[in-house]
């Protein structure tokens, strides 16, 4: 969250059983965002590691009015960083975890 002002975390424990994750995103540092956004609200959404892209989710969030177009890159980056971390964690866990 340091550089985008946004925080993304798992909304539910990742049981590594399938490619779908429940993620939660919220604004941790409003000063770092350019456009209008809702401050104290967390947005929970599902993310499929095989079919979804962070850019696509960010675009949907902008279209839904959660964030301004000028912040869509920051939203996509925050989601991408978290998803990358989750993938790395999954790779480290033994098969059938």
């Amino acid at each position: 969250a340091e550089d985008t002002g946004l925080r993304v975390e798992l909304a539910e424990e990742d049981d590594c059983s399938n490619s779908s994750l429940a993620l939660r995103l919220w604004v941790e540092d409003p000063k770092k965002l350019k456009g209008k956004h809702k401050d104290n609200e967390a947005i929970e959404f599902s993310f499929n590691l095989e079919t979804d892209t962070p850019e696509e989710v960010a675009y949907e969030m902008v279209k839904s009015g959660f964030f301004h177009e000028s912040d869509s890159k920051a939203v996509a980056k925050s989601i991408r960083d978290r998803v990358t971390l989750i993938k790395k964690t999954r790779e480290k866990k033994p098969a059938g975890w």
Binding site: N40, A42, F45, S46, E60, M61, K63, F66
Partner: peptide, 27 residues
């Protein structure tokens, strides 16, 4: 709960709820 709002966009569901006070950084 009344505080949770569900928004659908292009088949994706977003559940909006207040951020717990404990998670908000003192800005």
């Amino acid at each position: 709960s009344s505080l949770t709002q569900v928004v659908h966009s292009a088949g994706r569901r977003f559940i909006v709820s207040p951020v717990p006070e404990s998670r908000l950084r003192e800005s």
